[in-house]
Simulated scan of single mutants.
Amino acid sequence: MTSPRRMGPENSKTRLRFLDIAERLMLEEGYAAVGIRRVAREAGVTPALIHYYFRTLDDLFVALIRRRSEQELEAQERALESGGLLRSLWAYNSHPRGATLNVEFIALSNHRKAVRAELVGYAERARELQRKAVADYLKARGIDPETLPPLALTVLISTVSRALTIEDAMGLTVGHDEALALVEEYLRKIDGAPVQDAE
């Protein structure tokens, strides 16, 4: 029996640099531009060094998703703890860089099962974090979860804000002003609802 191949440490500056390069390539050229040889060329190293840290290209993509996911979960937790929770969630999900990476990861997940599994796992964790925070937020304002289901609200906020951000990046803005005015009206109503005393 052969011993497992030695891998580079996860917190290595070199490994993090490779992830930075892969992320930059995804943002600038799309996921198809990311490959072991391309990352190696951009880093000025041999492909063997990339393989020292990532056995396969899927391992590189999964590591990139995990890093981004942890960063995003931390950012979401900060947003959820801030005042004006729904507005914070809207702003968080409207970030152009995050929306661009999400599009690339979703497209990539159509071709790579490991990437799909990682994305779904992260999304489920993020949605549960948001659902709980939104449920507490609405309850504190006396808003009935039957009338405004917290999970439905989190899905609407994340998908609509990202879709508008993606369309805006493409130059498609027809209907955006009207949609944003409608969102603003509802956010103002919910955020402005008086906080109930805890019983």
Rank of each mutant, 00 (worst) to 15 (best):
G142S: 10
V160T: 08
S94P: 01
V45P: 00
D197Y: 13
Y137P: 07
P47C: 05
T154D: 06
L60Q: 03
R15P: 04
A123I: 13
L85Y: 02
L164A: 09
I190P: 10
G175I: 10
E23C: 05
V183H: 04
G98M: 05
L57K: 15
L187D: 09
G192M: 07
L57E: 11
R41C: 01
G83L: 01
E185S: 15
A114E: 14
Y122A: 07
T147E: 15
A99V: 10
E42H: 08
S94G: 12
T14G: 11
K132D: 11
E77V: 08
M26F: 03
V45D: 08
S82I: 02
G83N: 08
E128C: 12
A117Q: 14
R116W: 10
L86N: 11
G35D: 14
V174C: 03
A43Y: 07
I65P: 00
A33S: 15
F61N: 03
I106D: 03
T173C: 11
R24Y: 03
R15E: 08
A193C: 11
N102R: 13
D168C: 08
K132C: 07
T14N: 09
I190F: 09
A135D: 03
R5A: 12
Y53N: 12
A135Q: 04
E74M: 08
R5Q: 15
N102G: 13
E185H: 15
L60T: 06
A91T: 12
A123S: 15
I190C: 08
I166D: 10
E185I: 07
S69V: 01
R37C: 10
V62P: 02
Y186S: 05
E42C: 12
S82E: 14
L85D: 03
G192I: 01
E23G: 07
D197N: 13
R116E: 03
L86D: 07
A99D: 03
E167H: 14
A152R: 14
L138F: 04
E28T: 15
K132L: 13
Q76T: 10
R127F: 07
A193F: 02
P145D: 01
E72M: 05
E118I: 09
A179M: 13
L64E: 03
W90N: 05
G35L: 01
I106H: 09
R141Y: 05
S158R: 11
R37S: 15
Q196G: 00
D136C: 02
K113P: 10
H51I: 11
I106W: 07
Q71F: 00
L101G: 06
S12C: 10
A117W: 08
D177P: 00
E70M: 12
L148N: 04
L27T: 09
V45N: 06
E184V: 04
L57S: 04
S82M: 04
E23A: 11
K132H: 13
V115S: 05
A40V: 12
H95R: 14
K132S: 14
R116Q: 06
L180C: 00
T159V: 11
I106Q: 11
T46G: 13
I65D: 00
E104Q: 14
F18G: 00
S161M: 06
G121P: 02
S12A: 10
V155L: 11
S109A: 14
G142V: 07
Q71Y: 01
D177K: 10
